[in-house]
Every structure is written in structure tokens, then in C-alpha cells.
Design a protein around this nucleic acid. Structure first.
Lengths: 91, 91
DNA sequence: CCATAATATTATCATATTCGAATATTTTTA
DNA sequence: TAAAAATATTCGAATATGATAATATTATGG
């Protein structure tokens, strides 16, 4: 409890604590996707998706790489996301 | 992704995504505590702590039992909390 | 270099969350 | 049963967050 950065951890959870952001993360479990892919998969507008992606990036949940004219986002650690979701089911 | 209740999962994370609530959860890892205990351990006022405990209860993260004149809160599944925190470190 | 496709940023408004103060409720004990 | 201790609830103001529209930026192909 002493060496623990409560602020950082709670921000991490807060980041996952929004339905659109969580949906993005779940979609990315299938593999990397560029913004326009996500736009088709999620009921949200492009600027909104970009805003959420920004937060996911800030919290080190996703990263991206440029591919042609598209920016493709992917999970930094898919395994951790999978296991967190598994734990949720046992909560 | 189909059988997944995005709303419920994101609310679960959102609940953990507040520094005071996360602190409460971390304190409860040491064992059950009544509200006045938590009041001593956390820099927040009693009504505020009760408000956060209410959310933690609604999201099935904690439960309580009456002990004398005190209401003692405990984690419903400490093991899951421990493992989620462990995963955070590997994120 | 220019046009365009793809994505990001900003400003703004609406809504949600949070905290404190005041008050209510509940439980126990005198 | 009345008082006191412990906790919960309600309300309001301040702040934070979210979505949209409008605009800006960036990268690539021509």
C-alpha cells in the first residue's frame, strides 16, 4: 500500500471505465485497427474516437504505428487485457 | 465480444477509477474495516466515505455486516482484487 | 508542391461526478 | 425510552467529463 501509486492506478481503471473506450479495447483484442476501422465498428464519430484513443494512449493501454496514410492502433499488452477481463467474470 | 456486457464491465472499472474508492479497496485488502476505521485511514470525511462505499457496494466489490454498533465493510473477492492489481504492474 | 484522405485538436455546451454541510436514520446502551 | 454513537442520505455548488461541430494537421499520391 505504500509503494503503490494510487493516482496512476485509479486513472488506469478510470480509462477502462468508459463504455466507448472499453469497446475500443475489446475490438483491439482482435488485432490492430486504424481509426476508420474503429469508426465502422463503434457507434461514435471520428473525433470522439480520436479523443478516446488519446486517453488510451496516455494511459499506456494502446500504441499506434503509421501504415500508409492510416494510423493503426494496437494494444500494448493484449494478454493483460485478456486476463483482466477473465478476472472480472470471477468478481 | 458478443456475450460481453460492456456497460457492466466499464462501470466496474469506473468504480475502481477513483482515488478514494481505490484507496478504500486497498485498505480492505488488509481485512474488514468499519466506516470509522476508514475515516482514520483515509483523508476524507465520513459522509464522503459512505458515499463511496455505497458505489462499491452497488458494483458488488464490497459487502458489509453489522458488528455491534458498527457497520464493517469487506471485499467480496479479495483474491480478484489482488490479481487485478498484479496485472496492472505488468500493463 | 498540391489536393485529398485520414486523423487530430479545439471550443462549446450539456451532463455527470464529487465534495461538504446539514440532516436523517439506526443501533445500542444507560 | 431517551441519549449518544455510528453511519447514511439529501441537497447544492463546484468541477470534471463527454459529445458534437468546426477547424486544423499530417501524410501520401499525383
Amino acid at each position: 500500500m505504500e509503494g503503490i501509486n494510487v493516482k496512476k492506478i485509479s486513472e488506469f481503471f478510470k480509462t477502462l471505465g468508459h463504455p466507448v473506450r472499453l469497446t475500443i479495447v475489446l475490438k483491439l483484442l482482435d488485432g490492430k485497427k486504424c481509426v476508420s476501422n474503429l469508426e465502422e465498428l463503434i457507434k461514435a464519430r471520428q473525433p470522439n474516437i480520436s479523443q478516446h484513443l488519446r486517453l488510451l494512449k496516455l494511459n499506456e493501454i494502446v500504441d499506434w504505428k503509421q501504415e500508409g496514410k492510416m494510423r493503426c492502433y494496437f494494444l500494448k499488452n493484449p494478454q493483460v487485457v485478456k486476463e483482466i477481463l477473465k478476472l472480472f467474470k470471477r468478481r
